[in-house]
Design a protein around this nucleic acid. Sequence first.
DNA 1: GAACAGACTTGATGCCGGTCAATTTCTTAA
DNA 2: TTAAGAAATTGACCGGCATCAAGTCTGTTC
Lengths: 231, 231
Amino acid sequence: MAEKRACNHSCAHQACISLVPIFNHLEPAQMDEIMQTVQPGSYKKGEVIYRAGDQSDSLYIVNKGKIRIYRLSESGKEQLVRILNPGNFTGELALFQENVHEAYAEAVVDTEVCTIKRSDLQEFLIKYPSISLKILSEFSNRLEKSERQTARFATERVETRIALFLAECVEDQDGSLHIQLPMSKKDLASYLGTTPETISRRLTAFEEQGLIKQVGQRKMEILKLDDLLLI
Amino acid sequence: MAEKRACNHSCAHQACISLVPIFNHLEPAQMDEIMQTVQPGSYKKGEVIYRAGDQSDSLYIVNKGKIRIYRLSESGKEQLVRILNPGNFTGELALFQENVHEAYAEAVVDTEVCTIKRSDLQEFLIKYPSISLKILSEFSNRLEKSERQTARFATERVETRIALFLAECVEDQDGSLHIQLPMSKKDLASYLGTTPETISRRLTAFEEQGLIKQVGQRKMEILKLDDLLLI
DNA sequence: GAACAGACTTGATGCCGGTCAATTTCTTAA
DNA sequence: TTAAGAAATTGACCGGCATCAAGTCTGTTC
């Protein structure tokens, strides 16, 4: 791997490795070893990072910016699955199964990533089994969240899914009741399996019921969190 | 662990270990070691194996019978997540995160299981890292399937979800066009996020369109698989 | 600052699919 | 075999939400 070394350890693009939960428990020396294999990449706003069906052979770690991960359904419609912020990664599924992306990824704004070749990563998995355990923990969380999301789709109405999403925003933002939506309403609609129109209407209805107070494009104040969750 | 030994290696309830993909790559001696830690359990038809909120400290492997795994949504409605057959297991999520079940499990028919204590399994994970890799692969598949399912809920109509499910039945049954539904229509409705009435109506409609031919309770013949998938 | 494109809102309309109810068919137990 | 209780079907009804169509507002680029 040493021959891939592009620059020394202090390169900015490598620093993100230390942000990633699956690596940051390692010894400094081991972390350096991983950093040697990292390749930088950058994408302009709106640029596609990989497409569904692309050969998938790398792990992408977000260094700066924001990435949208979409999934295409059988009939070609797309759903927003997740938004990646610095320290998050994608491409991990391909490590353990067929090597074609099922999803596609797009830069929301100008974005810098670090990529690690799949083969390099697999070497590290064998060399440092603790990484496997970290990835297992990550997968476990993701699976849990994904199944929860599926159950919500299967059993809850759109109104409830929106309310639950707002509650999650409160949690993510450390319990503050002044929240900021992490994405546009169009993206949110895709994520929640509805339309921007319906999101807009439900939020207005919540406001008329005195449950929330909208303030500007993506900001709002949650007035009655408990009542919101009873919907 | 040896002191837990309840009987010798030939015990029937232990044999299932060799059926489980995450263990069956091990050396016979290692597999025996795991078998020593296995405890048998049996449940009558309809009996609950664990509830949402229960302390979760074991992996359950189905030896004989069938188990339904349900998830409860925030408002108490339940969705069928998965059905376990012999060789399948549940309780794996709790290995890597908080130790409370988010789902609940119920025996569909009289069922025998093997349980492995979480602490025992964690020892094995450290001792035999190859098990981690197998579980990673399993998780990776599950995550992939779960996200696909979520995307279907988000983007496809009930009619399409039913058609896609039928296509999966064909795959699972080795491409045979004479398929058997793996569960009752009530369960299927819960799994697909709809109602038994709607399932019944859509299948009748498929039949009237000449796409399938229903024959008896849970059996049918797929006449035009391609057309079914264009819906 | 003007102009433009996106993002968001609001209204009107229609239909998919959930709900309730009444049979009918199948399964299980006595 | 019969009886009882599920499971499945079929019909009537209607409400939630998608769709289409106009706007309004925001932010960005000359």
